[in-house]
């Protein structure tokens, strides 16, 4: 068997040093799309954690039986099956949020993070390690989603999770919500700010 895997780093590395969004720059599209409000961002994060963890486990279990030349198709089928389950669960128990997320739950299938982890990790590692890797990357993705969603909802709508947090006295004094924060460009700028802060704290990640 391959060299011993450090489970701890498999789980925790993607949180910061090897974060899928801000270091590998994967899955940016959905970060732009679902983070206008905090609630959908959180649901999206949880969905991706679940799909990523279980698809990693399933692919890892059958990794030795998948013919190499059709492996992408097999991976897609597994991910698609899980995504349909998540989508149905959301429609059953959180209909409003699932309507807000609209196609983006379905588009988890095409999220680069999933294909990346399945190809790079689950195809070569045992189920338990793959499970931890899936959880780690999913959480790394969800963290960024939640940070971006927090700032966009706070500055763009003055609310958090639908509750108004900017006091009325601010609005009476002339404060106005920033409409640009609701639009996708500011999600990109917010992600850029996170990357800026992250890179300046981790100098070893800075590109020359």
């Amino acid at each position: 068997m391959a060299e011993k895997i450090d489970y701890k780093s498999v789980l925790f590395n993607p949180f910061s040093k090897n974060n899928p969004v801000i270091v590998q720059i994967l899955g940016i599209c959905s970060v732009l799309a679902v983070t206008a409000k905090l609630a959908p961002a959180m649901v999206m994060g949880i969905s991706v954690i679940a799909v990523l963890a279980f698809s990693n486990v399933i692919i890892s279990l059958i990794r030795n039986t998948i013919p190499t030349n059709i492996r992408i198709i097999v991976q897609l089928v597994v991910v698609a099956g899980l995504v349909v389950i998540v989508s149905q669960l959301l429609q059953a128990y959180a209909y409003d949020v699932s309507k807000q997320l609209s196609v983006f739950i379905g588009l988890i299938i095409t999220n680069c993070i999933l294909m990346g982890r399945l190809e790079a990790f689950a195809m070569a590692n045992r189920p338990w390690a793959s499970f931890l890797d899936g959880i780690g990357n999913g959480v790394g993705y969800a963290i960024i989603l939640i940070i971006v969603g927090f700032f966009r909802e706070l500055l763009g709508s003055g609310t958090l999770l639908g509750f108004q947090v900017v006091p009325d006295s601010f609005y009476e004094a002339g404060y106005v919500n920033n409409g640009l924060m609701i639009l996708p460009p500011m999600a990109l700028v917010t992600v850029a700010c996170i990357i800026w802060v992250h890179r300046s704290r981790n100098k070893d990640l800075q590109e020359p």
Binding site: V176, L180, M181, L183
Partner: peptide, 10 residues
């Protein structure tokens, strides 16, 4: 442009 898209009413 930032003002225009952020605070269209103003």
């Amino acid at each position: 442009a930032v003002l225009f898209f952020s605070y269209p009413a103003q």
